[in-house]
Amino acid sequence: MLCCRMTEPTQEQVDQLTRAFELFTRRFKVAEAAAAADNALNALDAQTLVFIGDNPGCGIGDVARYLNVAMTTMSSAIDRLVRKDLVERGRPEEDRRSAALTATGAGRQAIEDHIAAYREACRMMLRSLDPKEQRELIRLTEKISRSGS
């Protein structure tokens, strides 16, 4: 069985990748901001809404843990989303003290807009590469996303 040996990157490589990722993430932030602007959402609210859309019936604590934010911060985000009629708070029968969060119809549309903008940013980035490079970028990005560090 072949095993690849991990090598420590040079400072120059780290600096190059840092600059590349700054530009890379800026494109995603711009795309995300454009989609969120249509719904007047900040980045936290947009990510909160996407999580709730993917996990209907989840609780505030579930979202806070996933996004790694304080409960008070998450409560404020949920309040904003409820006021904008993007999220509904329900009361589960088994625990009337907790809230079960679900996206409203308008919330689901906002999620679709957010995902469409994100996909368009990916499409734009992939367009700048030839097919072999596209496959390699996807392969490497998936490898990095699966690694624990």
Score class of each variant (00 low, 15 high):
95 D>W: 06
22 E>R: 12
106 A>C: 10
80 R>E: 14
43 A>H: 02
83 R>Y: 06
28 F>Y: 09
102 T>D: 07
115 I>Q: 08
75 S>C: 09
111 I>R: 02
62 D>M: 12
91 R>I: 11
112 E>P: 04
72 T>E: 14
47 Q>L: 06
105 G>F: 08
103 A>N: 10
29 K>Q: 09
96 R>W: 02
38 D>P: 06
82 V>S: 04
123 R>S: 15
82 V>E: 08
34 A>L: 07
48 T>Q: 02
40 A>P: 00
122 C>K: 03
23 L>R: 04
9 P>F: 14
93 E>T: 07
75 S>W: 01
27 R>K: 15
104 T>H: 01
80 R>V: 04
52 I>D: 12
121 A>D: 00
66 Y>K: 13
47 Q>T: 09
58 C>S: 14
99 A>G: 10
77 A>Y: 02
29 K>C: 01
62 D>N: 12
70 A>P: 05
93 E>L: 09
41 L>W: 07
72 T>I: 09
78 I>L: 14
40 A>F: 05
93 E>A: 12
75 S>I: 05
105 G>T: 13
93 E>S: 09
99 A>K: 07
56 P>Y: 15
49 L>Q: 05
67 L>E: 10
63 V>E: 03
77 A>P: 10
101 L>K: 03
42 N>I: 01
117 A>D: 04
103 A>P: 08
13 Q>F: 11
107 G>W: 02
101 L>T: 02
120 E>T: 06
107 G>D: 09
14 V>M: 09
108 R>W: 05
21 F>V: 10
112 E>K: 12
19 R>K: 13
117 A>C: 08
26 R>L: 01
48 T>S: 08
109 Q>G: 04
69 V>Q: 08
49 L>K: 02
126 L>G: 08
98 S>P: 00
43 A>M: 03
80 R>S: 15
117 A>G: 05
12 E>F: 13
125 M>D: 03
81 L>S: 07
110 A>P: 09
106 A>T: 07
25 T>N: 00
86 L>G: 01
45 D>V: 00
61 G>K: 14
48 T>P: 10
114 H>S: 00
65 R>W: 07
23 L>K: 11
75 S>A: 14
45 D>T: 04
36 A>D: 05
23 L>Y: 05
89 R>Y: 03
94 E>P: 06
23 L>T: 12
48 T>G: 03
97 R>E: 09
17 L>S: 10
53 G>M: 05
24 F>N: 01
71 M>D: 13
106 A>F: 00
35 A>N: 07
111 I>M: 13
32 E>D: 11
39 N>D: 12
116 A>H: 06
86 L>N: 06
52 I>Y: 08
27 R>D: 05
78 I>S: 02
7 T>L: 15
85 D>S: 15
78 I>M: 06
84 K>A: 15
21 F>M: 10
33 A>S: 14
113 D>K: 11
48 T>R: 03
95 D>S: 13
84 K>D: 07
34 A>M: 03
57 G>E: 06
67 L>Q: 11
27 R>F: 05
39 N>W: 08
32 E>Q: 01
108 R>S: 15
111 I>C: 12
115 I>A: 09
104 T>K: 01
68 N>M: 14
122 C>R: 02
60 I>M: 08
